[in-house]
Protein backbone atom coordinates (compact mmCIF):
# COMPACT_ATOMS: atom_id res chain seq x y z
CA UNK A 1 0.00 0.00 0.00
CA UNK A 2 1.20 3.51 -0.84
CA UNK A 3 1.43 5.79 2.15
CA UNK A 4 0.90 9.48 1.57
CA UNK A 5 1.81 11.56 4.59
CA UNK A 6 -0.31 14.67 4.90
CA UNK A 7 1.64 17.83 5.87
CA UNK A 8 1.21 18.83 9.50
CA UNK A 9 -0.01 22.20 8.38
CA UNK A 10 -2.43 21.63 5.52
CA UNK A 11 -3.30 24.97 4.02
CA UNK A 12 -2.88 27.15 0.97
CA UNK A 13 0.90 26.90 1.20
CA UNK A 14 1.10 23.11 1.32
CA UNK A 15 -1.76 21.87 -0.85
CA UNK A 16 0.46 21.84 -3.96
CA UNK A 17 2.69 19.35 -2.18
CA UNK A 18 -0.30 17.10 -1.44
CA UNK A 19 -1.73 17.31 -4.96
CA UNK A 20 1.68 16.79 -6.59
CA UNK A 21 2.21 13.69 -4.46
CA UNK A 22 -1.12 12.10 -5.20
CA UNK A 23 -0.81 12.32 -8.97
CA UNK A 24 2.67 10.80 -8.95
CA UNK A 25 1.96 8.00 -6.54
CA UNK A 26 2.51 4.42 -7.69
CA UNK A 27 0.04 1.65 -8.40
CA UNK A 28 -1.93 0.13 -5.60
CA UNK A 29 -4.15 1.34 -2.86
CA UNK A 30 -3.22 4.51 -0.97
CA UNK A 31 -3.29 5.32 2.70
CA UNK A 32 -3.66 9.02 3.46
CA UNK A 33 -1.95 9.43 6.80
CA UNK A 34 -3.36 12.59 8.37
CA UNK A 35 -2.65 11.56 11.96
CA UNK A 36 -0.13 14.31 12.51
CA UNK A 37 -2.06 17.18 10.99
CA UNK A 38 -2.10 20.06 13.46
CA UNK A 39 -3.63 22.77 11.30
CA UNK A 40 -5.99 22.75 8.37
CA UNK A 41 -7.82 25.46 6.46
CA UNK A 42 -10.54 25.31 3.76
CA UNK A 43 -7.91 24.86 1.04
CA UNK A 44 -6.41 21.94 2.92
CA UNK A 45 -9.72 20.23 3.62
CA UNK A 46 -11.03 20.56 0.11
CA UNK A 47 -7.65 19.57 -1.39
CA UNK A 48 -7.74 16.41 0.72
CA UNK A 49 -11.09 15.53 -0.86
CA UNK A 50 -9.64 16.24 -4.31
CA UNK A 51 -6.56 14.12 -3.59
CA UNK A 52 -8.73 11.28 -2.32
CA UNK A 53 -10.90 11.46 -5.43
CA UNK A 54 -7.83 11.34 -7.66
CA UNK A 55 -6.49 8.29 -5.84
CA UNK A 56 -9.86 6.57 -5.94
CA UNK A 57 -10.28 7.23 -9.66
CA UNK A 58 -6.76 6.09 -10.42
CA UNK A 59 -6.80 2.86 -8.46
CA UNK A 60 -10.47 1.97 -8.73
CA UNK A 61 -10.97 1.52 -5.02
CA UNK A 62 -11.39 3.88 -2.09
CA UNK A 63 -8.17 5.02 -0.44
CA UNK A 64 -7.93 4.80 3.33
CA UNK A 65 -7.80 7.89 5.50
CA UNK A 66 -6.25 7.93 8.95
CA UNK A 67 -7.82 11.04 10.51
CA UNK A 68 -5.92 13.57 12.61
CA UNK A 69 -5.13 12.58 16.17
CA UNK A 70 -5.48 16.13 17.38
CA UNK A 71 -8.93 16.48 18.89
CA UNK A 72 -9.00 20.15 17.92
CA UNK A 73 -8.33 19.40 14.25
CA UNK A 74 -10.65 16.39 14.27
CA UNK A 75 -13.43 18.44 15.84
CA UNK A 76 -12.92 21.27 13.40
CA UNK A 77 -13.09 18.87 10.44
CA UNK A 78 -16.31 17.46 11.87
CA UNK A 79 -17.80 20.94 12.28
CA UNK A 80 -16.90 21.82 8.71
CA UNK A 81 -18.70 18.73 7.44
CA UNK A 82 -15.48 17.18 6.15
CA UNK A 83 -16.27 13.63 7.18
CA UNK A 84 -19.67 13.63 5.51
CA UNK A 85 -17.94 14.30 2.21
CA UNK A 86 -14.89 12.17 2.96
CA UNK A 87 -16.88 8.99 3.60
CA UNK A 88 -18.04 9.10 -0.02
CA UNK A 89 -14.41 9.00 -1.15
CA UNK A 90 -12.30 7.36 1.54
CA UNK A 91 -12.52 4.25 3.62
CA UNK A 92 -12.65 5.66 7.12
CA UNK A 93 -11.91 3.64 10.18
CA UNK A 94 -14.37 3.96 13.00
CA UNK A 95 -17.50 6.02 13.34
CA UNK A 96 -17.88 9.04 11.09
CA UNK A 97 -18.83 12.06 13.16
CA UNK A 98 -21.79 14.09 12.05
CA UNK A 99 -21.52 17.76 11.32
CA UNK A 100 -21.76 19.66 14.57
CA UNK A 101 -22.68 23.26 15.20
CA UNK A 102 -20.38 25.50 13.18
CA UNK A 103 -18.10 27.87 15.02
CA UNK A 104 -18.94 31.55 14.74
CA UNK A 105 -16.14 32.14 12.22
CA UNK A 106 -17.30 29.43 9.81
CA UNK A 107 -18.66 31.17 6.76
CA UNK A 108 -19.48 28.08 4.77
CA UNK A 109 -19.02 24.43 5.66
CA UNK A 110 -17.71 22.11 2.95
CA UNK A 111 -20.50 22.01 0.40
CA UNK A 112 -20.54 19.80 -2.68
CA UNK A 113 -21.18 21.54 -5.99
CA UNK A 114 -22.78 19.27 -8.54
CA UNK A 115 -25.74 21.21 -9.89
CA UNK A 116 -27.47 24.54 -10.12
CA UNK A 117 -29.38 24.04 -6.86
CA UNK A 118 -26.12 23.65 -4.96
CA UNK A 119 -25.06 27.17 -5.95
CA UNK A 120 -28.40 28.52 -4.76
CA UNK A 121 -27.90 26.66 -1.48
CA UNK A 122 -24.45 28.23 -1.04
CA UNK A 123 -25.77 31.74 -1.67
CA UNK A 124 -28.72 31.15 0.65
CA UNK A 125 -26.49 29.76 3.38
CA UNK A 126 -23.94 32.57 3.48
CA UNK A 127 -26.58 35.29 3.75
CA UNK A 128 -27.08 34.78 7.45
CA UNK A 129 -23.39 34.63 8.36
CA UNK A 130 -21.45 36.64 5.82
CA UNK A 131 -22.71 40.04 6.89
CA UNK A 132 -21.64 39.66 10.50
CA UNK A 133 -18.23 38.19 9.69
CA UNK A 134 -17.36 40.61 6.88
CA UNK A 135 -18.28 43.58 9.04
CA UNK A 136 -16.90 42.49 12.40
CA UNK A 137 -13.75 40.68 11.26
CA UNK A 138 -12.80 42.39 8.01
CA UNK A 139 -14.27 45.84 8.64
CA UNK A 140 -16.03 45.71 5.28
CA UNK A 141 -19.26 47.68 4.81
CA UNK A 142 -22.51 45.82 5.49
CA UNK A 143 -23.30 46.01 1.77
CA UNK A 144 -20.26 43.82 0.99
CA UNK A 145 -22.38 40.72 1.57
CA UNK A 146 -23.77 41.19 -1.94
CA UNK A 147 -20.46 41.23 -3.87
CA UNK A 148 -19.22 38.46 -1.57
CA UNK A 149 -22.24 36.32 -2.46
CA UNK A 150 -21.77 37.14 -6.14
CA UNK A 151 -18.13 35.98 -5.94
CA UNK A 152 -19.24 32.70 -4.40
CA UNK A 153 -21.95 32.22 -6.97
CA UNK A 154 -19.66 32.86 -9.93
CA UNK A 155 -16.78 30.78 -8.63
CA UNK A 156 -19.07 27.83 -7.90
CA UNK A 157 -20.70 28.12 -11.30
CA UNK A 158 -17.28 27.69 -12.82
CA UNK A 159 -17.55 24.05 -11.74
CA UNK A 160 -20.97 23.51 -13.26
CA UNK A 161 -20.40 25.44 -16.46
CA UNK A 162 -16.84 24.47 -17.27
CA UNK A 163 -15.50 21.58 -15.20
CA UNK A 164 -17.91 18.91 -16.34
CA UNK A 165 -17.33 17.29 -12.97
CA UNK A 166 -18.17 17.79 -9.33
CA UNK A 167 -16.40 19.86 -6.71
CA UNK A 168 -16.58 21.46 -3.30
CA UNK A 169 -16.54 24.89 -1.74
CA UNK A 170 -15.72 26.03 1.80
CA UNK A 171 -15.02 29.35 3.50
CA UNK A 172 -13.77 30.40 6.90
CA UNK A 173 -12.54 33.54 8.67
CA UNK A 174 -9.15 33.39 10.40
CA UNK A 175 -6.90 35.70 12.30
CA UNK A 176 -3.65 35.63 10.33
CA UNK A 177 -1.91 37.30 13.24
CA UNK A 178 1.60 36.15 12.42
CA UNK A 179 1.41 36.04 8.66
CA UNK A 180 -0.41 39.29 7.97
CA UNK A 181 -1.40 40.78 11.29
CA UNK A 182 -5.00 40.86 10.16
CA UNK A 183 -8.14 38.80 9.89
CA UNK A 184 -8.79 37.16 6.54
CA UNK A 185 -11.55 35.17 4.91
CA UNK A 186 -10.29 32.13 3.02
CA UNK A 187 -12.46 30.68 0.24
CA UNK A 188 -11.58 27.42 -1.43
CA UNK A 189 -13.33 26.00 -4.50
CA UNK A 190 -11.93 22.88 -6.11
CA UNK A 191 -13.14 20.31 -8.58
CA UNK A 192 -11.92 17.14 -10.24
CA UNK A 193 -13.25 17.96 -13.68
CA UNK A 194 -11.48 18.51 -16.96
CA UNK A 195 -9.60 21.66 -16.00
CA UNK A 196 -9.18 24.90 -17.92
CA UNK A 197 -7.16 23.41 -20.74
CA UNK A 198 -9.73 20.67 -21.27
CA UNK A 199 -12.61 23.14 -21.18
CA UNK A 200 -11.08 25.54 -23.69
CA UNK A 201 -9.20 23.17 -26.00
CA UNK A 202 -11.86 22.62 -28.68
CA UNK A 203 -12.49 26.32 -29.19
CA UNK A 204 -9.10 27.89 -28.64
CA UNK A 205 -6.20 25.40 -28.79
CA UNK A 206 -5.66 25.74 -32.54
CA UNK A 207 -4.98 29.45 -32.47
CA UNK A 208 -2.27 29.00 -29.81
CA UNK A 209 -0.52 26.24 -31.76
CA UNK A 210 2.53 24.84 -29.97
CA UNK A 211 2.12 27.28 -27.10
CA UNK A 212 -1.15 25.66 -26.02
CA UNK A 213 -0.98 24.15 -22.56
CA UNK A 214 -2.22 24.58 -19.01
CA UNK A 215 -0.51 27.94 -18.54
CA UNK A 216 -1.85 29.45 -21.78
CA UNK A 217 -5.33 28.08 -21.04
CA UNK A 218 -5.26 29.72 -17.61
CA UNK A 219 -4.05 33.01 -19.10
CA UNK A 220 -6.78 32.85 -21.74
CA UNK A 221 -9.53 32.45 -19.15
CA UNK A 222 -8.08 34.42 -16.25
CA UNK A 223 -6.61 37.38 -18.09
CA UNK A 224 -8.64 37.53 -21.31
CA UNK A 225 -12.02 36.10 -20.29
CA UNK A 226 -12.11 33.40 -22.96
CA UNK A 227 -14.53 30.54 -22.54
CA UNK A 228 -15.55 27.57 -24.62
CA UNK A 229 -18.80 29.33 -25.49
CA UNK A 230 -18.96 31.62 -28.54
CA UNK A 231 -21.52 33.81 -26.74
CA UNK A 232 -20.03 37.27 -26.11
CA UNK A 233 -21.84 37.54 -22.77
CA UNK A 234 -19.75 34.71 -21.36
CA UNK A 235 -16.40 34.91 -19.62
CA UNK A 236 -17.38 37.64 -17.19
CA UNK A 237 -17.40 35.48 -14.06
CA UNK A 238 -13.69 35.16 -13.45
CA UNK A 239 -13.02 38.68 -14.74
CA UNK A 240 -15.43 40.19 -12.26
CA UNK A 241 -14.22 37.99 -9.41
CA UNK A 242 -10.68 39.26 -10.09
CA UNK A 243 -11.89 42.86 -10.11
CA UNK A 244 -13.76 42.51 -6.80
CA UNK A 245 -10.91 40.63 -5.12
CA UNK A 246 -8.56 43.40 -6.22
CA UNK A 247 -10.90 46.07 -4.80
CA UNK A 248 -10.65 44.31 -1.44
CA UNK A 249 -6.86 43.99 -1.78
CA UNK A 250 -7.26 40.23 -1.80
CA UNK A 251 -5.50 37.38 -3.56
CA UNK A 252 -6.84 34.82 -6.01
CA UNK A 253 -4.97 31.86 -7.43
CA UNK A 254 -6.09 29.09 -9.76
CA UNK A 255 -4.22 25.86 -10.20
CA UNK A 256 -5.25 23.74 -13.17
CA UNK A 257 -3.24 20.89 -14.62
CA UNK A 258 0.44 21.69 -14.37
CA UNK A 259 0.15 25.45 -13.87
CA UNK A 260 -1.10 27.99 -11.39
CA UNK A 261 -1.97 31.59 -12.14
CA UNK A 262 -2.53 34.28 -9.58
CA UNK A 263 -3.46 37.85 -8.99
CA UNK A 264 -1.93 38.77 -5.69
CA UNK A 265 -1.43 42.04 -3.80
CA UNK A 266 1.88 43.16 -2.35
CA UNK A 267 1.31 41.33 0.95
CA UNK A 268 1.43 37.97 -0.87
CA UNK A 269 4.59 36.69 -2.55
CA UNK A 270 2.87 34.04 -4.71
CA UNK A 271 4.28 34.36 -8.25
CA UNK A 272 1.80 35.37 -10.95
CA UNK A 273 2.44 32.13 -12.83
CA UNK A 274 3.88 28.79 -11.73
CA UNK A 275 4.49 25.99 -14.20
CA UNK A 276 5.82 22.47 -13.92
CA UNK A 277 3.42 21.25 -11.26
CA UNK A 278 2.26 17.66 -11.36
CA UNK A 279 -0.78 17.25 -13.66
CA UNK A 280 -3.67 17.34 -11.21
CA UNK A 281 -7.17 17.00 -12.67
CA UNK A 282 -9.70 19.81 -12.41
CA UNK A 283 -9.17 23.29 -11.07
CA UNK A 284 -8.31 24.50 -7.59
CA UNK A 285 -9.25 28.07 -6.79
CA UNK A 286 -8.15 29.86 -3.65
CA UNK A 287 -9.27 33.33 -2.58
CA UNK A 288 -8.02 35.29 0.43
CA UNK A 289 -9.80 38.47 1.45
CA UNK A 290 -7.97 40.49 4.13
CA UNK A 291 -9.37 42.90 6.67
CA UNK A 292 -9.13 46.51 5.65
CA UNK A 293 -5.85 48.22 6.51
CA UNK A 294 -5.57 49.17 10.14
CA UNK A 295 -7.87 46.41 11.31
CA UNK A 296 -5.89 44.11 13.57
Amino acid sequence: MNVLTIPASLDQQTVDQLLDQVVTIGDGRTLFDARHVRWVDPNGMVALLVAGSVARERHGEPPRLEPPESSDVFGYLARMGFFEQARQIFELDGRVPRRGGGSSDVLLEITPIRANDDVHAVVDRVQSRAGAILVSKLDYPATSVVPFSVILSEVCQNIIEHADGSGWVAAQAYNWARRLGRWVVVISVMDVGRGFRGSLADEHAARYGDRWGDATALEAAFLHGLTRFPDSGRGQGIQQIRRQVQRWNGAITIRSGTARIGQVPDWDDTPPMTEGLAPCPGAQIGIVLPARDGRA
Partner: peptide, 14 residues
Protein backbone atom coordinates in the same frame (compact mmCIF):
# COMPACT_ATOMS: atom_id res chain seq x y z
CA UNK B 1 -38.38 28.71 -11.28
CA UNK B 2 -36.08 27.33 -8.62
CA UNK B 3 -38.73 26.45 -6.04
CA UNK B 4 -36.92 28.50 -3.43
CA UNK B 5 -38.10 30.76 -0.68
CA UNK B 6 -35.37 33.16 -1.69
CA UNK B 7 -35.24 35.60 -4.54
CA UNK B 8 -31.60 35.27 -5.41
CA UNK B 9 -31.14 35.62 -9.11
CA UNK B 10 -27.98 33.53 -9.39
CA UNK B 11 -26.62 30.99 -11.87
CA UNK B 12 -26.88 31.09 -15.62
CA UNK B 13 -29.37 28.25 -15.65
CA UNK B 14 -31.74 30.14 -13.36
Amino acid sequence: TVASLYSHLVTRQT
